[in-house]
Write a protein that binds this DNA or RNA. Structure first.
Lengths: 123, 123
DNA sequence: CAGAATCCCTAGCGATACTG
DNA sequence: CAGTATCGCTAGGGATTCTG
């Protein structure tokens, strides 16, 4: 019989895995977490998320917008002003990844201790 | 004054961002989610997580082991048998990522609808 | 300011072969 | 079986330039 317990996400190129990879991508996580707190303009967000290039920020925002997580509001003014915020769906995603990010920050000491133990045992 | 509200994870090369990237890496998510349900042997896990190469599975497991999330139990038998499971810290991580994975699978229809709307508007 | 377009490069990753 | 080692590629991503 087939393995009914294997979730869809474990299959190659399934829809859920692609979405999951958008959400958990290097910059996707940080963008969602940031927008979970408030809306940002493009370069404001770029300053907030350390190390992200213009190209990757635009690319990440477009993927998240297309997936229905991010709302793009381009004001018809000069100079251009574009506000990014979350849709209700995006808010749900942001809660999940923010929770994960907070958990990680909280557990940094434990991880560093584990690494020290691992590295010493490997000598 | 300095921006006190910016979490550590938004800084480049900070410890928490590196850990987050291990946990949210392409295969890290799926490995943690799998081990959250039960322990696996190496090639059992490789079959379970569709599309992962030996190299990437080994590399992912090593990173997660070093971070203190995964326990590696190599039985001294022939043929070799190595069981992978989660530490208590890894269980906490697995709960977070499994929750996220389940949420994504649950929301696949909404995302697909959003993409259809986005793509049509872009024509 | 908010991007799009281009160039370019390396490191991440897969495929394969080998070992204990 | 559970890896390690090596090779080779390509696509992810940075830097730069250009535009409305």
């Amino acid at each position: 019989m087939t393995e009914l317990l294997i979730p869809d996400v474990n299959r190659v190129n399934c829809p859920s895995r692609v979405i999951l990879e958008h959400v958990t991508s290097r910059w996707g996580v940080l963008v969602l977490a940031a927008l979970g707190e408030r809306s940002y303009r493009f370069s404001e967000l770029r300053r907030h998320v350390g190390g992200v290039s213009e190209k990757m920020l635009a690319q990440t925002l477009q993927a998240l917008e297309r997936d229905g997580f991010v709302l793009r509001d381009a004001k018809p003014v000069i100079p251009p002003r574009v506000d990014y915020s979350l849709t209700p769906l995006g808010q749900e995603a942001a809660e999940q990844v923010s929770s994960l990010a907070r958990w990680v920050e909280h557990r940094v000491p434990e991880v560093q201790a584990a690494r020290a133990a691992y590295d010493e045992a490997k000598v």
